[in-house]
Amino acid sequence: MIPLLKAELRKTFTTRVWWILLLAALAWTGLMLAGTFFVAGMEHGPGRDSAEYGAMAWPQLANGTTFALVIGVLMVTTEYQHRTVNVTFLVTPERGRVIGAKLVTAALVGVGFGLTVAVLGGSAVAASILSAGGSLDLAANEVPRVVGGTIAAYGVYTMIGVGVGALVRNQVAAVVACLLWVFMVEPAFMVVPNEVVQTIGSWMPGIALASLYSTSSADFGFDPGQFLPVWVAALALVGYAVLASLAASFTTARRDLA
């Protein structure tokens, strides 16, 4: 397994897409943080020294997860797009092992993304609180859980991306499907004011993930009471990752590469 992991890591880091997506994740997260920063400092805002500002700011670090999802998708679909999958399966005819190596690589790359965003974005949040004269009360806003959950979310999202990519294979279709899911389908479930719809929504991957890093006072346009408990959400996500991997390995193992 180690040789395949080395190969997959080298594949990921020898084209440009990884740092483009990492910069995109940082830029998007930075934009959202900047928005929170200005809103908090406005006339009727809570003020940047308040606990409320911390509760709003820390969960913003998870905004880059969409790009983690996309890099996971690309880790599989570029192989079909550029037909390098032929070379990959000639070297390793047991296709299930290739998918396994891609999933582990995805987890590592995703956690790497999460750590980078958490360190850079987290420093910015801390600096903004301290410079406003606020205190960095980590316990009050559950910062360790929020940041830990954020990093885990990046890892899980990248793995789910690999599953989606292996199932769909077409690069454009897979990326578009993921973006529609994240920006339309899940938010739709969140905004419908119906308890059943919101309960179903709370089990969806992106919203289950949100429960890992959300704070009780953060406003998602979705009553935070509807979030799954953290441990239930974590189990649900493991379930999604397992399902995606099984489906991916099963279909990949059987398909003809004509």
Partner: peptide, 21 residues
């Protein structure tokens, strides 16, 4: 044509080396 256009030739070979041990 089974090559990624954004990867250097040497890296393509190294990826294959890695996977094949």
């Amino acid at each position: 044509t089974n090559l990624h256009p954004g990867r250097r030739g040497r890296d393509h070979l190294r990826v294959v080396c890695d996977a094949a041990g």
